[in-house]
């Protein structure tokens, strides 16, 4: 091997290392837990017994997909019957909040943090939580970090030093069949508002399960959001053609068609 070749090879290796470091750094930056700077004052004003409640929902797509965690914060005491209602709105600054997911420890063991990344904060991030308002934050959990099926996960939201804890959510398996897995993936992508991904998954679902109504439905949702009314109507009609009768009339689908047809 010539010296020039060796020098060239070394340069490539160095470049690869540099790229790897940069990628890793970027990955870390993107995946870090959003947290306020030290000493940041949060604006939550709830008393020690917080009227706020937190709910966690985890959407599992196909195997290997990142999971989507939806964290909703609302004023539970403002929604209670009058005898115990605390109607005063609670101000909360979610931009400065710390969202943490954690898995349930074994008996007696502390909960273990579950790596997650905030994808979307409530809009606006600073809001007054009254009886009607619900602040929704979307996080993602890398597939590799997702606990085993059956494990329980909950969310912890630190609002101005006032830590709120959500319900426990059991990690469920992805759908058993390809169609269910792709439908789950599409829903998770829709929550993430990743329309391109939804479109791609919808087509994959239509290809994999042409008699399944859901592929056409997600295709319609994407087209509707992109303003393709005719395409959306066609997709929804295709959905109707494949829809099995249920306990409730698919009023939402008919109304979509009507709405787009006007």
């Amino acid at each position: 091997m010539s010296a020039a070749l060796r020098r060239s090879l070394a340069g490539v290796i160095l470049l690869a290392v540099a790229v790897a470091v940069a990628v890793a750094g970027f990955w870390w930056w993107r995946h870090r837990t959003v947290s306020p700077a030290a000493g940041t004052s949060l604006s939550a004003t709830q008393p020690a017994q917080s009227p706020l409640a937190v709910r966690l929902q985890i959407s599992i797509g196909a195997p290997g997909d990142d999971a989507v965690a939806t964290v909703r914060v609302f004023n539970a005491m403002a929604r209670q019957p009058e005898s115990i209602r605390a109607a005063a709105p609670v101000a909360a600054d979610f931009a400065a909040a710390i969202f943490t997911l954690e898995t349930e420890g074994a008996a007696g063991a502390a909960a273990a943090p579950l790596p997650s990344r905030v994808l979307r904060l409530p809009q606006p991030a600073t809001m007054s939580l009254d009886a009607a308002a619900t602040a929704t934050t979307v996080l993602t959990v890398a597939a590799a970090a997702l606990p085993l099926v059956g494990a329980r996960v909950r969310a912890r939201v630190d609002l101005g030093g006032n830590t709120l804890v959500s319900n426990w959510v059991e990690v469920v398996a992805a759908g058993a069949g390809v169609a269910d897995q792709l439908a789950g993936r599409a829903r998770a992508q829709l929550i993430r508002e990743a329309l391109d991904d939804v479109a791609q998954t919808a087509e994959a679902l239509i290809t994999a399960a042409p008699r399944d109504s859901r592929g056409y439905f997600y295709r319609g949702l994407v087209l509707e959001r992109r303003g393709d009314r005719a395409g959306a109507i066609a997709a929804y009609r295709a959905t109707l053609d494949r829809l099995s009768p249920g306990d409730e009339p698919p009023i939402g689908l008919y109304e979509r068609i009507k709405r787009l047809s006007r």
Partner: peptide, 16 residues
């Protein structure tokens, strides 16, 4: 609960 339902179905109770 919030759950993905069949297309067009906005709500559902089990059993009905």
């Amino acid at each position: 609960k919030d759950q993905g339902l069949d297309p067009g179905t906005l709500g559902l109770t089990k059993p009905r």
